[in-house]
Structure formats: C-alpha cells, structure tokens
Write a protein that binds this DNA or RNA. Structure first.
Lengths: 229, 229
DNA sequence: TCAAAAGTGTTCACCGTACACCCATGG
DNA sequence: CCATGGGTGTACGGTGAACACTTTTGA
C-alpha cells in the first residue's frame, strides 16, 4: 500500500511484560523459558509482538494471557527500549510494561505455567537481550510508584492482614519499616476497611483482615487527597 | 529479508516532541504549522519518524533540530501513544518526548522558527491527531517531575534570579508561592550558588544571580539526597 | 501457663506554612 | 527623598521517626 508516509522505515514493535508477584513474603518476578529462536531455551521476560489491529495495552494483556494464562491483571507502560541492536535478529522496539499480581490468588489459572517460573528478585537468572536492564528499570519504577499510588494492593489478595501489607512494602522498598508507624500511617489514609474477620493461619490470636476501599479512595481523590507512604 | 520474525506486523514509529519553553514570565509550548499532508497547514507538535539506524532518543534530537534548529536540549521520553487509528493515514505508534528550553537563550538559533511559534499554554490552538491529549499528558508529567527533579533549571538561562526561578515554578505548577518560603526552601537544598553579580534589569537595587551547581547536586545524590520542592 | 504473634501511644525533632517589615538604589 | 522591587526571620501546628509493653489464645 502506498501512501504519504510510504518512504519511511518501519519496525517491529514488541511488548515485554515484567510480571511482579507477591506471595505474602517476597517480591518475585515471573520469567519464562523462551520456546522459539533466537535464544530458544534461555530465560526471558514475557514478550510478544504488537499486531495491526490492537493498541499496546491490548497487546500486553494478550501476550501475558497467551504465555502464562494470567488474566485480569494490573499493567502499566513504563518505558520504551529502542537501541538499534537490542534484538540481534531484527530491529525491534520494545515497549515495556510491568504487571502486578497476587501469586496465590492466581495459582489456579496459569495453565501454561509449566514454562514460566517465579524468581525472587535477588535470585533471578541472567536474561537475554536487554531484559536485565528492563527488569532493573521496572523495579526502580515500581519503587517510585508504590509510594505515591495505591498499586500495592494489586499484589495482595482481596483480603489481607496489616502484616502482609507491611511485608509487601518492605519487599518492594527493600527496607525494614516500623510496625507501629506503618499501621498508623496506613490507617490515617482512611482507604482501608477493617473486616470483622481474622486470619488465624499465622498466630493464635489471629490478625484482622483488611480490604482496600476503592470508593473511599476515589472520593478522597476528588478532594485533592494525595496518596503517600 | 526473511527471518525468524518475518510473519509479524510492522508499524511506523513516530517521535513527537512537546517543547516547553520559559521566558521568565510564562510557560509556553512550541508548535509548528505542518507543511506536509495529511493535515497540512494545521498546528501540530514537532514530530517525525524513527529511522532504521537511530534509537528513539537520537530521533527525538534530530527531529527537533530539523524542524526548529534547536540543539542541545533536555529531552525525556514520557509516554507511548498507540491507538489503532490515531493517525488516519497509516498505523503509527508515537513515542512522546518533552523538551525543556530557555526561550531567550535559544533565540539566535532556531533558524527555522518561521514555521514554529511559541504559545502560552492557555492560548494554544487546537492540534491535530491526538496531540491535544499528548500535550495534556506532557503538562501533567512535567508538573509531577519538576517537584522531584531539578529539571526546572533547564528552562532557565545559566544565570538566573530567585524571582525567575519562582516564576517558573509558579507557571508550571499553576499556583502562587510565598517568596520567603520559596527562597529558604531553595537555599536549604544547597545546590545553587549565589554569584557576586546582580541583574539590574528589573529594579534599582538589583537582584542576585544564581547558578545551578551540578557537582554539588551529584555529590548530594550520592549521599541519598532527595530533591523535593 | 507460656510462647508467639497482634495490637496499640507518646514524645520529640524537624519541616512546611503563614505572615510583614526594612533595605538599597536610581531617578 | 521617595518609589520600586529585593531581601530576610519567626512562631506555630503538623508530620515523620524512634521507641516497648500489653493482649490474646492455642497448645
């Protein structure tokens, strides 16, 4: 097809997803053994190519679903990687997304998870292409964002304990936090509801379960509320 | 050329630059009358296509230089726009950058500036494609970033007065700030040097000129310093 | 009854904010 | 000498950080 732009160079567009997960203890990343050339058999991020009839957000969702069976996941674009030779096969520009999921709640899905595996951030293997760099950048981006947006709740089950929430923040930020200060800070935000339900799995006393209250949060946003941890 | 990826769809990649400028008074954006089809003659952002042999950062620099003559400019990628029909002519994915420049210092360059024009943000005309949306998103991104990174200095001449700096922040954030608080906050950062030079252009007493001290700033960064206004 | 985790308050230092007067100078 | 913009300090409330003991209950 000839048109006004016909003399311009075209390129392949990839979407690559850094899938972060949390199991109540550690922050992990989902990697996959690549099953096609080049670099077949090596550890890789979850990636695929943009198709004609979809935008990037849709492509990211499709690719993740296709490679892992994961569905209904929070995803956000965070950077574009475009070094000329980043993919040795052909010029490919990659739009990187990170995804956040609660590992335990998604255990049942993930029918394709034989090829994918969760790695603790510190134990992740070396990745192909510029994926190590992408991973670093995604972690940095997550650290920054989780302090000013309530995206952390995407990494937790619907109901969670204060300790789980604190563990999550400690994992992402990679620092210890004080329990009392953390609790009161979170409570002061006024965007969680404490249920009349306890999780007794980890203590005799049991710990209260909390839920993120989307409505309250949106109400507060309208009044100029700024989420900040 | 056939290769492993040969069945994948390709797309055009555009870079579009939102060029912000400051003249000591107002925050402005540089727009251009488009001189090619489609939409020839209408107001547009500064944009062009990515070439085979360059990465996106280089393309952004080239496009800006080519269309405006502006050189040596701070630029940062901030979002990718990929709606399927965002360019009616052909599927085009646009990586958007914003650029920051001090209008007065660059007055001499800009040999091509007959077709480009500075608009105050509030008086900018309607733009083609999804460029209005891009502009909005760039402004939001700038507001967020200028509070936590010293990018504001890119919009000022090498030497500037405290009042110019304050005007800049007021323009970007679109709110009034208190002179005494602003000055002491800035001074407390310890990343400016006050010169033994005064700018007498706007008063009899004259006001001190300041310079951003990159070395001091980098030193402080190493010690975990966080820029915050 | 005791071990193990949950829940809860106070103090203090620092920071952000509100607020108004004197200074220097050219005309 | 005076009009104009430049420069400066203080008081107060609020927020973030450090810090430890009591409660619950299943085993």
């Amino acid at each position: 097809m000839l048109n006004k732009y016909s003399k311009e160079d075209k390129a392949l567009l990839a979407v690559d997803c850094i899938v972060f997960g949390f199991d109540g203890e550690d922050l992990k990343v989902l990697l996959i053994k690549r099953d096609f050339e080049p670099e077949k058999g090596k550890w890789s991020l979850i990636g695929g190519f943009l198709k004609k009839e979809e935008d990037l957000d849709k492509a990211a969702i499709r690719v993740l679903d296709h490679l892992t069976g994961l569905d209904n996941v929070y995803m956000e674009q965070f950077y574009v990687f475009s070094k000329v030779d980043r993919d040795p096969e052909e010029r490919t520009i990659s739009v990187a997304y990170y995804a956040l999921i609660d590992i335990d709640s998604h255990n049942n899905e993930g029918t394709h998870l034989e090829t994918a595996k969760w790695f603790s951030l510190k134990e992740a293997p070396e990745l192909i292409f510029d994926y190590d760099q992408m991973l670093d950048k995604a972690v940095a981006s997550l650290k920054r964002t989780i302090k000013i947006n309530p995206i952390g709740f995407e990494l937790l089950p619907d109901k969670f304990t204060m300790l789980q929430l604190q563990n999550l923040y400690e994992s992402v930020l990679d620092e210890k936090l004080d329990k009392r200060n953390f609790t009161s800070k979170i409570n002061a935000l006024g965007i969680l509801v404490r249920l009349n339900e306890k999780d007794k799995s980890s203590s005799k006393k049991g710990s209260y379960l909390y839920q993120f209250d989307t409505n309250k949060y949106n109400e507060k946003l309208k009044d100029g509320f700024v989420f900040k941890i």
